Amino acid sequence: MDLLDWHRDRLSARRLTVLVRQLPHDSALNRELHGEAADWSVTDHLLAAAVDHLAAANWMFASVNSEEGDQPDPPAPVPRPSYGEETDKETPAQGSEPEAEEPAPSTVQLARFFG
């Protein structure tokens, strides 16, 4: 397809819009617009979430079964591509309170949860 057809009135603006919107996720345009995020599929996100959950479960198990002074550090999540959410978190909307981080559960709370 020749994009000059749009200027020659052989390709409508609607058809061009449909073609651009239906480009595959790994197309050059999507990579230019979204960067690394274009390479991540739903499967990749689900695998990263599964790894994070397994690491958290292993950390909880190790925290419950270790001495009070010998607690392991919490696991770091799998790095994911940025989608512009970091800028949203840094500048809260007008009139809204910034979200406070929840403290990590204590070993007593973890032991009570896992019974």
Score class of each variant (00 low, 15 high):
Asp2His: 12
Leu3Arg: 13
Leu4Ala: 12
Leu4Gly: 10
Asp5Ile: 00
Asp5Glu: 11
Arg10Met: 06
Ser12Phe: 07
Ser12Gly: 08
Ser12Asp: 04
Thr17Lys: 02
Arg21Ser: 14
Arg21Tyr: 08
Pro24Asn: 10
His25Glu: 02
His25Ile: 00
Ala28Lys: 05
Leu33Val: 10
Leu33Lys: 05
Glu36Gln: 13
Glu36Arg: 14
Glu36Met: 11
Ala37Gly: 03
Ala37Ile: 00
Ser41Thr: 15
Leu46Trp: 10
Leu47Val: 11
Leu47Gly: 07
Ala49Phe: 04
Ala49Asp: 07
Asp52Lys: 02
Leu54Pro: 01
Ala55Phe: 03
Ala57Met: 10
Asn58Thr: 01
Asn58Trp: 10
Trp59Asp: 00
Trp59Ile: 00
Trp59Pro: 01
Met60Pro: 05
Met60Ala: 15
Phe61Lys: 06
Ala62Met: 14
Val64Phe: 08
Ser66Glu: 15
Glu68Asp: 15
Gly69Pro: 15
Gly69Met: 15
Gly69Ala: 15
Asp70Gln: 10
Gln71Asn: 08
Pro74Trp: 04
Val78Gln: 07
Arg80Gln: 13
Ser82Val: 04
Tyr83Cys: 07
Gly84Met: 11
Gly84Asp: 13
Gly95His: 07
Ser96Thr: 15
Glu97Ser: 05
Glu97Gly: 02
Pro98Val: 01
Glu99Phe: 02
Glu99Thr: 08
Ala100Thr: 10
Glu101Lys: 09
Glu102Trp: 08
Pro103Asn: 01
Pro103Ala: 04
Ala104Phe: 13
Pro105Val: 00
Ser106Asp: 11
Ser106Leu: 12
Thr107Asn: 13
Arg112Tyr: 14
Arg112Asn: 13
Phe113Ala: 14
Phe113Trp: 12
Phe114Glu: 01
